[in-house]
Write a protein that binds this DNA or RNA. Structure first.
Lengths: 132, 132
DNA sequence: GTATCTGCAAAACATTTGCAATTCT
DNA sequence: AGAATTGCAAATGTTTTGCAGATAC
């Protein structure tokens, strides 16, 4: 049983060929792809793969907490299989999205002290070193 | 010349009745409204107001830097006339969006030290005090 | 009188939904 | 066989675009 299969089962997701392929893609290519990008790449190997299945699968992954949804763009949602605490930097020139590490613990907001905090998203936009 | 008119002129935006109304609305009601919400409220006073104009105007305001675009929701864009450094907290129960203050200076990311940083968005989701 | 702004209608996208066919056990 | 998954086609909802008429200076 492959790593991905095991990981899905551990997270109470029934493995299917499509689900395993999509998760493998997200783990292998950490480019924070959109639904369209994932579909375009995988449809080469799985010609019958539909966008609906990509949508369904990603929705399931997000619900089960094994994938994060990234809203750094105005128009489309991106996905990230790295669920550890980290931020996202988007270069407005090359449009690449970089991960950077930060500690949620570093962000202490007194005003929210008594609120229940479930998710923290830190998005920074600017120009990356390569494009400078 | 009203405050809003002056403010628009200072930011090189030609004042029009529609533009002034939309800006006034954003300044008065700090609810981070969507295009639809703004349109629905203002069309009562300005029956000819079109959504296209709301879209055009907000796009212009964002370009000129007098309004911030908020992407805390998956499906629609929200707008904020408060351009000072602050974060947004979304209560997943009542769906209200709260502002909270934080210092951009508090978020120092070594990995991005040499990058040019243009915008920082901090979105926190959870449950607010009222809904607890 | 010429630029710009507005607003309708249509188009363009991303995403969701209904449902029938397929797959898996 | 029975339950879940897949995928097509259509619907939905947000945002953009093209263009004609209105407005402003």
């Amino acid at each position: 049983m492959g790593n991905v299969t095991k990981f899905l089962v551990e997270n109470k997701i029934k493995p299917s060929y499509q689900r395993m392929s999509i998760l493998e893609y997200l783990i292998k290519y950490k480019t924070h792809p959109t639904v369209d990008e994932i579909h375009q790449k995988l449809v080469v190997e799985i010609p019958t793969l539909s966008k609906t299945t990509v949508y369904n699968t990603l929705k399931l992954f997000v619900e089960k907490g094994i994938v994060l949804l990234i809203n750094i763009e105005d128009n489309e949602t991106r996905y990230d299989a790295d669920t550890s605490a980290h931020g996202h930097f988007k270069c407005v020139k090359c449009n690449k999205i970089y991960d950077f590490s930060f500690n949620n613990a570093d962000i202490v907001v007194d005003e929210l002290k008594q609120y229940i905090i479930q998710q923290t998203h830190l998005y920074i936009k600017g120009i990356c070193l390569i494009c400078l």
